[in-house]
Every structure is written in structure tokens, then in C-alpha cells.
Design a protein around this nucleic acid. Structure first.
Length: 104
DNA sequence: CATTTGACTTTGA
DNA sequence: TTCAAAGCCAAAT
């Protein structure tokens, strides 16, 4: 009974600290190159008990998710900074530096 | 069962 | 190069 959500959780749980992954990347791992929305949507249904690094999952341009999701405007950014993630002048993640690449 | 929505990506102008 | 619109899949209503 492996649901879509469970697969997403598995991938997100594999994201190493200090790194970030994109929705499209995760979606592709699940075999859904166009299922990026589903990944983000799955994140919305993630039980907080799983301690999934959902803050490490961002969009392609390295921008953080809408504030209302984390319950604060600088919430996600604070978590990322605590992990050592750096931001550029545009307030986005330095993807060149922190993009999680399995195929290194 | 059909319609709407959603933490996105890609393509076109 | 940047901005706007379409596309996509799954869950919720």
C-alpha cells in the first residue's frame, strides 16, 4: 500500500542536511516528471511527527514556499540558515551551492 | 462521479 | 532576458 505521499516522504527523508532539493527533481525520482505539484502537495500533508526536512524542498529557482504554509514569513528561511544554507541577494537559495544532487 | 484546487514546471511572446 | 499563460496529476469537496 505504497501511496504517492509515502514515496515523496521517502525521498525527502533522504535529503542530506545543508542541501536542498527541487520539486521537479523529487517528482522525477518518482517517475512523474510533471508531478512537481504533487510533491509540493504531498508536503502539505506531511505529518510533523515524521520530522521531514520539508523546508529543504524548494522550487526550481531556489525560492522558498509561500509563508502561509510554514506559518511565518521568515520561518522556512530560518530553518535553512540553521542548517548552513546560504541565500543570495534576491533572498533565494544559492542553488549552485546547496542543490542536492544524487548523481554527483 | 465531476469539479476545483494546489508548497510547480515548461513553453511562448 | 523577463513576464504571462498552459499543462499536469492527485486529493479534497
Amino acid at each position: 500500500m505504497k501511496g504517492f505521499f509515502q514515496e515523496v516522504y521517502g525521498i525527502v527523508a533522504q535529503i542530506p542536511g545543508g542541501k536542498v532539493a527541487t520539486y521537479g527533481q523529487i517528482a522525477m525520482m518518482l517517475g512523474r516528471p510533471r508531478g512537481a505539484r504533487m510533491v509540493g502537495w504531498a508536503m502539505a500533508g506531511v505529518p510533523q511527527e515524521l520530522n521531514l526536512p520539508c523546508h529543504q524542498v524548494v522550487n526550481q529557482i531556489g525560492e522558498l514556499s509561500p509563508a502561509h504554509v510554514f506559518g511565518g514569513e521568515g520561518r522556512q528561511r530560518a530553518l535553512l540558515e540553521a542548517e548552513g544554507v546560504t541565500f543570495n541577494q534576491s533572498g533565494k537559495i544559492n542553488m549552485k551551492m546547496h542543490l542536492w544532487q544524487q548523481d554527483i
